[in-house]
């Protein structure tokens, strides 16, 4: 099916999703231009993670449509995945494999070469000292760094990051921000689900706030207006 080559990184219309009887997303319409870095804010249960998972083709919307670089997320999920780098809230690592083995598995699944690139990724995220240690013994911050290394194996155009700063120390936060900024420079983009603005200040172009499953506000940053939203969820 021919796709109109859209210039938008993300184009969503009326995206809605229900779980059982509960509507988590009630019609999200938003746009992300290439190179933009957007923060997604909202209280717990406002639907931020669900929205990210829909964009990441892990969930189908119950209603509405969305396109990533012109590819429909429901009809062309494989094309969408080529452009995406998804960092979930849970790292999705295998506890009984070592750091390098986890990366090696990812590289093989991605069709990437296996060799120096793995070590380079580990070095970039500062995990060289635990290359051959099993992930079971890693702290939450170390697991997040390893997940980040996995993201770096393939240079994705669009980053979808779900609360990427949690469990990271200041060095980790700086590392995350440098990677996000890189994505923005390369003409890609990033959608970052945030619990609080502080770690991402200075990196974001604008923020979108979700309240009760709808877009409540879209504002340029920096001007961290920390909104406390009473989402009934």
């Amino acid at each position: 099916m021919a796709t109109v080559q859209s210039e938008l990184a993300i184009e969503a219309h009326g995206v809605a999703r229900r779980f059982g009887a509960r509507w988590v997303l009630r019609g999200i319409t938003l746009e992300l231009r290439p190179g933009e870095i957007v923060g997604l804010l909202g209280s717990n249960g406002s639907g931020k993670t669900t929205l990210l998972r829909i964009f990441g083709t892990l969930l189908k919307p119950s209603a509405g449509t969305a396109r990533i670089y012109g590819h429909d997320i429901v009809r062309e999920p494989n094309d969408v995945r080529e452009d995406l780098g998804f960092l979930a809230h849970t790292p999705g690592l295998y506890d009984d494999l070592t750091a390098r083995e986890n990366l090696r598995f990812a590289a093989e699944m991605l069709g990437q070469p296996v060799g120096a690139n793995l070590d380079a990724a580990l070095e970039r995220v500062g995990l060289t000292h635990v290359t051959n240690e099993r992930v079971r013994g890693f702290s939450a911050g170390m697991q997040r760094r390893l997940a980040l290394a996995r993201l770096l194996l393939r240079r994705p155009r669009l980053l979808l990051l779900d609360e990427p700063y949690s469990n990271l120390d200041s060095a980790g936060i700086a590392l995350m921000n440098s990677i996000i900024v890189e994505a923005g420079h390369a003409g890609g983009g990033a959608l970052v689900v945030l619990h609080e603005l502080a770690p991402a200040a200075g990196v974001l172009d604008r923020t979108i706030t979700i309240v009760n499953g709808r877009v409540a506000e879209s504002a340029p940053a920096p001007a961290p207006r920390v909104r406390i939203v009473a989402g009934a969820g």
């Binding site: 990441g56 892990l58 080529e82 979930a88 690592l93």
Partner: peptide
């Protein structure tokens, strides 16, 4: 089980192919 414990299944479904 091993895929579900740490959310690895989501990651597995992200790979092309």
């Amino acid at each position: 089980q091993v895929e579900l414990e740490s959310g690895a299944l989501d990651q597995l479904l992200q790979y092309p192919g």
